[in-house]
Each structure stands twice: as C-alpha cells, then as structure tokens.
C-alpha cells in the first residue's frame, strides 16, 4: 500500500471519529442552550456532572468548546488527508490540546465531582482514539518508506 494511501486512510478515520464527537458535542450544546435537560438514562452521576459548575466556563458550555475542537480536528484531518502538509501539524496540535482538556475533565470527574458522565466518557474515548492515531502516525509513515 502506498504512503499517500495510508495517509488518506489514517486521516479519513480521524475525520470520521471527529465527526462523531462533533455530533455529540453539538447535541450537548443545543441541550444546554435550549434549557432542556439531557437524557441521562437514569444515571444520577450524569446529572451531577452536567449540572455542575465545571460544565460551563462563565456562560459558555464546555460542550460548545468541544464542538469547536472536534470541528477543527475534522477540518484539519480532511485537509491533511488531501495532502496539505501544514494541516497535519494543526491536527496534531488540536488533538494534543483536546487530550490535555480531556485529562483535566476526567480528573474533575474522578476527584472533584466523584461522578462520571456517560457523554463525557464517550467523548474521552473518542479523544483517546484520535490521540492513538496521532501517536501511531509516525509508524504508518515509516512503513511507507
């Protein structure tokens, strides 16, 4: 398989994962802005997290920042998949920032709120997948040579 083909597959996977994250973060943002309450499926912890002061920064919901981050990751992955070299760097930086933010949010849930929210855990899993792809990328690029 050619190097550019591996890159295309790699960035397509990253773009797809980012799209899933974008959909989830958009849902949570709309829920927040419309004054509706998320469907937590009978999980009290979910309410504890989504109803906590950590769920927003000032009046801005954290999920809207997540939507922005996922959209950025999607855009950079798409451009990188089409061979834009600079987009690869931006993609790596974006995913690194998302990874750090995810670690902070997991810390908050584990040690401050003592509760985990299923939406947040799902998002964390997506970010870990993206991070895994970023870490695995040099291997893929080495293989092509």
């Amino acid at each position: 398989m050619s190097g550019s083909r591996i890159q295309t597959i790699f960035y397509s996977a990253a773009a797809l994962i980012s799209l899933v994250g974008l959909a989830e973060a958009t849902y949570l943002t709309v829920i927040f802005l419309s004054g509706e309450t998320a469907v937590c499926g009978g999980s009290p912890d979910c309410f504890r997290v989504l109803g906590s002061s950590y769920a927003k920064i000032g009046k801005i919901p954290v999920s809207s920042l997540g939507a922005l981050a996922y959209f950025s990751a999607f855009s950079f992955a798409t451009f990188a998949g089409f061979g834009y070299a600079r987009a690869q760097k931006f993609f790596t930086w974006t995913v690194t920032a998302m990874f750090c933010m995810t670690l902070w949010l997991l810390f908050v849930q584990a040690f401050r709120l003592h509760a985990f929210c299923r939406y947040c855990l799902f998002s964390a899993a997506l970010v870990f997948l993206l991070t895994g792809l970023v870490v695995a990328r040099p291997v893929a690029e080495t293989q092509k040579t």
């Binding site: 004054g35 999980s43 009290p44 109803g51 769920a55």
Partner: peptide
Amino acid sequence: LLYREQAVWSNSTDARALFNAYAGMLQ
C-alpha cells in the same frame, strides 16, 4: 424533570444532591 427522573432520586440516599444537580442542569 423531577417526574422524569423520579425512579432515580426516589431511591437515592442523597436526593438533595441530585436536586442541586437538576438545578444546575436547569441553569
């Protein structure tokens, strides 16, 4: 919200904490 989540807080040992969380969700 209280009716929708009735089964959850009814069986909770700390229902007040959940009511506070609901209040947070309702901003």
